[in-house]
């Protein structure tokens, strides 16, 4: 339960798809002019991520990675099909996106029209493929966690596009210098927003990324080494005691 909560908040705030890895920028920049369309696209991204990441997890687990085929029999244990990851992951994603497109067109034609080309383009949204590839690279251990990871990454992306859409609605009447209007100012806003999101950087991991005060780390290292030495000694002693007992 604890690891689920941790992964959830980590993927939303700390490893935010937009502000930490800058993935999925094209639709993030293009469809963030109005809050209502941004919400629609964000919801679609949440859905696609939450479905494709666990599906791809299953593919990865039982088909692609080193030794994944051993369930077919011992003679298949040596196969490593992970070079097929990209094409299989993308195939899954494209299928899911087609499904979403059909559903959205049927139930909300207005949203379908306002999203336009960007709905099918979710298939090549790097945040979606990125979610699956991060899942593979971080070796997420279970199907439940994979689903959690997909869902929370999607929510992080949703929050990002929601915030920037509201900001862009707010600055619509601002006197932005003409060369910066449109995409230019959006890039600058994204950078500034990333500064705001940096407040979470290093949280939970204990601030390893931030530069600590050098002398203290040296002292801490020394203390840790001493602690390790002590532990080793105690282990040795226990071993020897066991040996005596056996004798």
């Amino acid at each position: 339960m604890l690891e689920h909560t941790e992964l959830f908040f980590k993927s939303i705030f700390i490893d935010n798809m937009v502000f930490a890895t800058f993935l999925g920028m094209c639709s993030y920049l293009a469809v963030s002019k109005k809050v209502s369309t941004a919400v629609g696209l964000g919801a679609a991204v949440i859905f696609v991520l939450a479905v494709t990441v666990p599906l791809n997890w299953l593919l990865d687990q039982y088909l692609l990675r080193d030794g994944a085929l051993s369930w077919l029999g011992p003679e298949y244990a040596d196969y490593n099909l992970s070079f097929l990851s990209f094409i299989l992951f993308i195939a899954t994603i494209a299928t899911m996106v087609q499904l979403v497109e059909i559903v959205v067109e049927k139930f909300s034609p207005a949203l379908y029209n306002s999203l336009g080309i960007f709905l099918p383009l979710i298939a090549v949204n790097c945040a979606i493929l990125g979610g699956s590839l991060f899942m593979q690279a971080r070796e997420i251990p279970s199907l439940g966690l994979a689903f959690n990871y997909g869902l929370s990454s999607g929510i992080g992306w949703f929050l990002a596009i929601l915030a920037i859409a509201a900001i862009r609605e707010k600055i619509r009447y601002s006197n932005v210098p003409p060369p910066l209007r449109g995409l230019g100012i959006t890039f600058i806003i994204t950078g500034l927003m990333a500064i705001g999101f940096m407040s979470f950087g290093g949280m939970l991991t204990g601030g390893d990324e931030a530069a600590p005060v050098p002398e203290e780390t040296a002292v801490q290292k020394k203390a840790e080494e001493e602690k390790m030495n002590l532990e080793e000694e105690t282990e040795q002693t226990t071993v020897s005691y066991n040996a005596i007992e056996k004798e």
Binding site: G196, F197, S199, G202, G206, G207, E209, A210, P212
Partner: peptide, 17 residues
């Protein structure tokens, strides 16, 4: 976040966003 014991300014920036 032990790296940023002074989190107030970051919290305000985040909420500004």
């Amino acid at each position: 976040n032990p790296a940023y014991p002074e989190g107030v300014f970051l919290a305000i920036l985040l909420m500004n966003v």
